[in-house]
């Protein structure tokens, strides 16, 4: 026999409930429809689109637009497809996320467990970077990159994104570590562990949730960035800039199916990151914010 269920739900009327679900469904459709259009049209020949059947399922299914977008579409002047730019983006985003996350974790560790006079000011200044609009730093950044000899290169882009990302990753880790019991650090000190040992053996193993948050946030932002990529990319432009060049080209036939495939390709990595790590995202956000 099933145990008696304690009724704890607040009852909503049937009509109200139906209304809520309808509204939610409409919102879901509103967000899913564009993706549906992109997906469907990326899988049909261009002729079907130009015939005016945007919403219809393909009559002749084809992966040709995807292949073109990936390896042979005209990007700017070269018929290279998006592949090299995709690689550029990966080469930029992976080190940038890794470096920013590690530095953020170290900053958070120092700002909570090894506080020094003025640590609040330092943290405040780091936070400030979160609020500086990108456009303001374009020209100074270009000067700095030029002086460093990093202009127009992937390392240059990595540096720019690290500088911008470190404020956020520090904020995340600082709030997370603020809730981390200081007694544990003291116990480890008495046990004889030094600065880095405490970090790697005690703090980092329990930082999973906040690392997921930091990685998702940074990955999404850096991958989706257009302004820095277009400004400082030079010969190694990221995916976003290439997609723009593909879609905005003013000569030749507009190959909508290829454009759609390219757009999905550009969005895919962030989508994958969300699906793989998303359920930790909310948990991590809560852990960082509520306890901190």
């Amino acid at each position: 026999m099933a145990p008696a269920q304690q009724d704890t739900a607040v009852h909503t009327g049937r009509i109200a409930r139906t209304f809520i679900y309808v509204v939610l469904l409409v919102f879901a459709l509103f967000y899913l429809l564009p993706f549906f259009v992109m997906l469907v049209n990326s899988l049909k020949p261009l002729s079907e689109i130009t015939d005016g059947n945007m919403m219809a399922l393909p009559r002749a299914w084809t992966l040709e637009p995807w292949r073109q977008a990936w390896s042979s579409a005209q990007i700017g002047v070269q018929p290279t497809g998006l592949k090299p730019y995709f690689v550029n983006s990966l080469l930029m985003v992976v080190p940038a996320v890794a470096i920013t996350t590690v530095l953020g974790a170290l900053n958070g560790y120092v700002l909570t467990k090894w506080t020094f006079p003025g640590h609040r000011i330092i943290f405040g200044l780091l936070l400030f970077t979160c609020f500086i609009p990108f456009q303001i730093v374009l020209i100074p950044m270009a000067t700095v990159l030029g002086k460093l000899g990093l202009a127009g290169s992937i390392p240059g882009l990595i540096l720019v994104h690290c500088v911008y990302g470190i404020g956020f990753s520090t904020l995340y880790y600082r709030n997370y570590y603020a809730a981390f019991p200081t007694e544990l650090v003291r116990a480890a000190m008495i046990d004889g562990a030094g600065f880095f040992r405490i970090f790697f053996r005690i703090m980092l193993p329990v930082s999973g949730p906040i690392t997921v948050v930091s990685v998702i946030w940074l990955f999404t932002n850096i991958w989706n960035d257009f302004l820095f990529g277009a400004s400082f990319g030079g010969q190694s432009q990221p995916m976003t800039v290439a997609l723009n060049n593909l879609v905005q080209s003013s000569t030749g036939v507009k190959e909508y199916n290829v454009h759609f495939a390219g757009a999905i390709l550009a969005a895919l990595p962030t989508l994958v990151v969300y699906i793989v790590a998303g359920r930790y995202f909310v948990r991590g956000l809560m852990a960082g914010s509520v306890k901190g």
């Binding site: 007694e183 544990l184 003291r186 116990a187 000190m189 008495i190 005690i202």
Partner: peptide, 17 residues
């Protein structure tokens, strides 16, 4: 340094890793 005093400490919150 605490680790070089040859002391051991039991904390209020136990402070187990």
């Amino acid at each position: 340094h605490p680790s070089k005093r040859n002391i051991a400490m039991v904390f209020q919150s136990y402070a187990l890793y």
